[in-house]
């Protein structure tokens, strides 16, 4: 666990993405926090998984061994970076050995080809950047969205950030899978206008197989959140992965779960796309990713029609 000063919390921020349209109402600025408590086999943000800064490598910025070659010598770990025989002059990374390099090593790379995923930032640093987009929020009823990783894994920072956003008149949303202790949820949710939350799989055994843990805590947290925060808007979501959770029974089970709660205002399906692949290569974790396909239009339309029917929207899309 990272040591945090509760009076002036800092957070490990992965990225701040401007002008997002799929992370809550209106035009939004999404702040990606680092660290996740699940290991979904379809994860599209692998760089957000670990709650610590990590080395990354962007080969297009490398100027090669002849002109540089700093990473081929200490303090970089032996064999972590190398130039393969007979290929180009560019440096390659052995990710199993690069784990032995300190993130501080990145500063030695003069071109920034070796860099670090994850930056420690203060609340004001983040909010000052977020506020640059404030004119767009007013036009579109948008605001700030905390995403990840799992943004609730940094509860002190997330709560301070969202509280600060409210003080600056910015609407707040979070994207979460909620596999965290309830005290984290309870600490952050008072400062959240909209919570987008993932119902990944209904069956606890399947949930464990595909995400690493069962969903007992997740479902318990969802129920408590719906009941404890009646004025917060909740939007349920399912990242739709063919062969994993694209069955009607899962969709109907989620609908049954959320039906009693009027503050769950929508249920959205997010069709899986293979957009995480390039990032796996930046981190050298290609071997961890399973081979999934995107759902078909027909399957998506069919499942969305079931949801529309429950929400009284009528007619398939």
């Amino acid at each position: 666990m990272r040591a945090i000063d509760p009076l002036n919390p800092t957070g490990l921020v992965l990225n701040i993405q401007h002008f997002c349209t799929h992370d809550g109402p209106g035009m939004r600025t999404t702040v990606f926090l680092k660290g996740c408590s699940l290991r979904c086999k379809w994860c599209s943000n692998p760089e957000s998984i670990h709650l610590k800064p990590e080395l990354a490598y962007d080969s297009k910025k490398c100027i090669g061994k002849k002109q540089c070659g700093y990473c081929l010598k200490p303090p970089f770990a032996e064999g972590a970076f190398y130039v393969p025989n007979g290929l180009d002059d560019k440096v390659h990374v052995n990710w199993d050995l690069a784990n032995d390099c300190s993130p501080d090593c990145a500063a030695m790379c003069p071109t920034g080809a070796i860099y670090v995923f994850g930056q420690e930032m203060t609340v004001d640093q983040v909010l000052d950047e977020v506020e640059q987009d404030s004119s767009f929020y007013r036009e579109s009823d948008g605001g700030i969205t905390l995403s990840g990783g799992e943004c609730l894994l940094q509860p002190d920072f997330a709560a301070a950030l969202l509280k600060g956003a409210h003080e600056r008149g910015i609407n707040t949303a979070i994207e979460t899978a909620c596999n965290v202790p309830w005290r984290f949820v309870e600490q952050v949710l008072p400062h959240v206008d909209t919570m987008l939350h993932d119902h990944k799989l209904t069956d606890p055994v399947h949930h464990k197989k595909w995400t690493g843990v069962d969903n007992s805590k997740v479902l318990e947290n969802f129920k408590k959140a719906y009941e404890t925060f009646p004025n917060t808007k909740f939007i349920a979501r399912t990242p739709l992965i063919p062969g994993v959770n694209d069955d009607e029974s899962h969709i109907r089970a989620v609908l049954a779960f959320i039906k009693p709660y009027k503050n769950v205002i929508n249920y959205e399906l997010l069709p899986y796309h293979r957009f995480g692949e390039s990032k796996y290569s930046y981190l050298g974790r290609v071997y961890e990713m399973e081979d999934f396909k995107s759902p078909s239009e027909e399957s998506l339309a069919h499942l969305r029609a079931i949801i529309d029917e429950q929400f009284g929207r009528g007619g398939a899309q």
Partner: peptide
């Protein structure tokens, strides 16, 4: 040149935005 890292970090990025192609069986 590969697309910028920033673009590849977008949750809306598509496969075409990543320079690295993983060959599937």
């Amino acid at each position: 040149a590969q697309q910028s890292l920033r673009a590849s970090l977008s949750p809306l990025a598509t496969g075409a935005q990543g320079g690295h192609v993983i060959h599937r069986s």
